[in-house]
Each structure stands twice: as structure tokens, then as C-alpha cells.
Simulated scan of single mutants.
Amino acid sequence: MKVTILCVGKVKERYLTDGIREYAKRLSAWCTLDIVEVADEKTVEGAPEAEEDAVRRKEGQRLLAKIPDRAFVITLEIEGEMPDSVALSKKLQKLMTGGVSHFVFVIGGSLGLSPEVRKRSDYALSFSRMTFPHQLMRLILLEQIYRSFKIMNHEPYHK
């Protein structure tokens, strides 16, 4: 099983990189994990919508270039489905049983995902209607993937 976290921008805070490293280590029992970062575009607060669209398109092109053709793509979107941890685990397990061997989770930049990336998505996932910093979202996502594997393998994990 291969899991790729494909994201815009770099994580700069040490406490986040420490947490990401810890969950990457834990996940190594069940999958090969790759974290792939693409460059983010600088944006000005209050930029016109056309400029924001151009930023999303540029970041989207970079993301799409890193997605393998046969991968199952899960985009993180505010408008996506909001399963609980057990339901997410069951969904991933069902997909694996059905032959999926590579998941690519996509975390967009501060302006979100381009329509082209959203079109490429096989499943839109939301953790909340709230907005989270994309650096923090990487850690939260890894924890939930880890939790999913623990649930699939009937192993205890704190609630």
C-alpha cells in the first residue's frame, strides 16, 4: 500500500514537522508514505478574484503533474464529505479490497484547489466546515490515516 500526501507549500514550524515525522514513522507498519510538496504562489491579501484564480491554476498545474494516472485521489475540500473516523477507515478498506493500491491525498494552498484538481479527485474529503492552516492540516490528515489503519487492523487507539 502506498500513501502520498501531496501538498502546496512547506511546513515551517518545528512542532508540526516533529508531529508529521512521528506519524510517518507509525504509518510505516502499514504503508509506504511519501510527502510531496509543490511550490506555493505568493498572494496579496484582498487580491482580485482573477488573480486568485490564476494562483489556484498555477498551484493546480503543479499538483496535477505529481499525481500518477492510476492513483486514487482524495482531495481535502471544505465542501467534501465529512465521515467520522470509523467511516473513513471503512471507505479506505473497501477501496483497498477493491484493488486500490495507491492513495494520493491532496491539500491545496491558502486559496484552495483549482477546478482542474477538483475534477481529477475521486473523493472529496472534509474534516470540518472550518478552515485550518494547510500546514496543520497535514498533521491532522496523517493522524487520521494512522487511526484508519489502527481501526482496520482491530488495534486499540485512544478515542
Rank of each mutant, 00 (worst) to 15 (best):
V44A: 11
T17G: 03
E45R: 12
M96R: 15
L63V: 08
T43Y: 06
I20S: 05
E81W: 02
E22D: 13
L88I: 01
S89K: 02
T43G: 15
A39E: 14
E22C: 00
L63G: 12
C31F: 03
E59A: 09
D69L: 05
Y15H: 13
Y15A: 08
D69P: 10
E59M: 05
R26D: 04
K58L: 14
F105Y: 11
S28T: 03
L92G: 07
D40F: 12
S89M: 02
K25P: 00
F105I: 10
E81L: 02
V55K: 10
V104W: 07
A54E: 14
K58V: 12
L64E: 06
R21W: 01
K90G: 05
G99C: 08
E41F: 09
A29V: 03
R14H: 08
I35D: 02
R26F: 01
E13A: 14
L64C: 04
R14N: 11
K90W: 00
L88R: 07
E41D: 14
V38W: 06
G80T: 06
P83Y: 04
R14E: 13
E52Y: 03
L33C: 04
G80W: 12
V38F: 08
E59I: 06
E37L: 01
R26G: 01
A39C: 01
G80M: 02
E52A: 13
R70Q: 13
V73S: 07
T17V: 11
V36E: 04
A71H: 06
A50T: 12
A50Q: 13
E59V: 07
G98M: 06
C31Q: 02
E52M: 12
L33Q: 08
C31L: 14
R57P: 00
F103Q: 11
A29K: 15
L88P: 04
G98V: 07
F103A: 13
I35V: 15
P48C: 04
E41R: 13
E13C: 02
K25R: 13
I35H: 07
T17A: 05
A65V: 01
T97Y: 08
I35P: 04
I67W: 01
F72V: 06
L64F: 05
V86W: 06
T97V: 10
R21Q: 11
D40I: 02
H102T: 10
A54T: 15
M96E: 15
